[in-house]
């Protein structure tokens, strides 16, 4: 069993007074092991960002304990922040400094050995070289995100916190980021990531914590969470018998949608054979069939709708 790199126990954050305040994070506990990539998912206002900010020591918890690399911020702030980094679409850097000046100052604050070589490596990796001399405030949102990602990898963090790391990025750069995350994991980096891009989370995360109303409501691998959505979508491109198909689905109690020549029916995994056999018995013919397994996105939607 690998070491618990991040250990959060009974963490609570209440803004305002105990009587009239807002409970943003409600007594959550979780751990992240070395080399793990863990997704922190939830709707807007669920408490994800507050949790991340507490992990960065930018918000003081109301109660609970955060241990990173076995220590806490009160006694080990320097050592923790030396080996931790953070990237988000919302992170800004000094506006008047050039990209290179910003990265150089950051590399030195993290005491990166051979900082110019490291900057050069990540500048090339994230395609930042072409605007290295530009002042940060002149960059587009996507360019800023790439610079902030360079900053986040500069010190080879043992723990990387990512908040929507690929929002505002072109798909090819987002792919690069995912590749870099997975490659860094092979070097032992641990990642806690929040994202609204469910495909991204499914691709990179070993485990997902689903947070809602400040509480962790479920925790599992992306595949297992998706499996909790038992409905599978069967989409048929009809040749003959479209009306019979819709009528049968309704009679059988399966949710059904009809659009042009396509009919989509939601069934439990165990009912697929029954559905297809029944349609065949009724002489229904279709040109194409696709059976979509539930995804993490389905879980997310069902979860918010209380359907899981």
């Amino acid at each position: 069993m690998t070491e618990l790199l991040l250990d959060v126990r009974q963490l609570t954050k209440r803004f305002g007074s105990p009587a009239a305040g807002f409970l943003a994070v409600d007594n959550i506990s979780f751990g992240v092991r070395e080399g793990e990539i863990v997704g922190l998912l939830g709707p807007n206002g669920a408490g994800k960002s507050t949790t991340i900010f507490m992990l960065l020591d930018l918000i003081s918890p109301t109660s609970g304990e955060i241990r990173i690399f076995g220590g806490d911020y009160r006694h080990n702030r320097d050592a923790i922040l030396q080996k931790l980094n953070y990237s988000s679409t919302y992170v800004e850097m000094a506006p008047r400094l050039s990209v290179y000046e910003n990265l150089l100052v950051m590399a030195r604050l993290y005491q990166v050995p051979d900082e110019k070589k490291e900057i050069s490596t990540y500048v090339d990796k994230f395609g930042v070289r072409e605007f290295l001399g530009a002042q940060f405030h002149t960059l587009s949102a996507g360019q800023k995100t790439r610079v902030v990602l360079c900053k986040a990898f500069l010190n080879h963090p043992a723990l990387l916190l990512l908040d929507e790391p690929t929002a505002s990025l072109d798909p090819d750069v987002a792919l690069l980021v995912r590749q870099e995350i997975l490659e860094s994991r092979t070097r032992g980096m641990t990642v806690l990531i929040t994202s609204h891009n469910m495909a991204e989370v499914e691709e990179v995360c070993d485990r997902v914590l689903f947070i809602n109303h400040g509480k962790i409501v479920s925790e599992d691998t992306p595949v297992e969470l998706a499996r909790k959505v038992r409905h599978i979508r069967v989409q048929l491109m009809m040749k003959d018998g479209q009306k019979r198909t819709v009528a049968f689905a309704k009679k059988a109690g399966f949710p059904v949608e009809e659009k042009d020549r396509f009919v989509t029916i939601e069934v439990d995994e165990g009912d697929i054979a029954y559905l297809l056999a029944s349609l065949a018995d009724q002489g229904v013919e279709y040109r194409q069939i696709s059976i979509d397994k539930p995804t993490l996105e389905d879980y997310f939607i069902k979860m918010l709708g209380g359907g899981v």
Binding site: D57, D78, L84, M93, L109, Y110
Partner: peptide, 8 residues
Amino acid sequence: NTLFITPL
């Protein structure tokens, strides 16, 4: 606060 998520 970008500065203060470094050891500064």
